[in-house]
Amino acid sequence: MHIATKMKTRTQQGITEVLVLVNHPMDTGLVRSKVTHKIIPAHFIKTLTIAVNHKPAVITDMGIAISKDPLIAVKLTHTKKGDLVTVDWIDNEGMTGHAQTHVS
């Protein structure tokens, strides 16, 4: 299973806003399937890291309460044009995802 990770940045007045979208099911492990009547096992992102030039800027630890297909936004200062912004995440099943972009 491939999970798409997308990232976008926009810079205004020296502040760079980073938007991250991951197409992840974020299953809580508390819900019963309407089809099979079995509990859908928990499958959620545990940690998502946003880094600038490979230096972590924001690290998010998530629980099961984050919505499906997480969309998060953070704001960074001291970024320069051309800086490499990366996002990496890992979920409870050991799956990982990555996306990168440059500050424009």
């Binding site: 919505s67 997480p70 969309l71 936004a73 953070v74 704001k75």
Partner: peptide, 10 residues
């Protein structure tokens, strides 16, 4: 380097 800002859906 991060501002006190976070946007998420829960």
């Amino acid at each position: 380097d991060a501002l006190g800002f976070f946007n998420v859906r829960i």
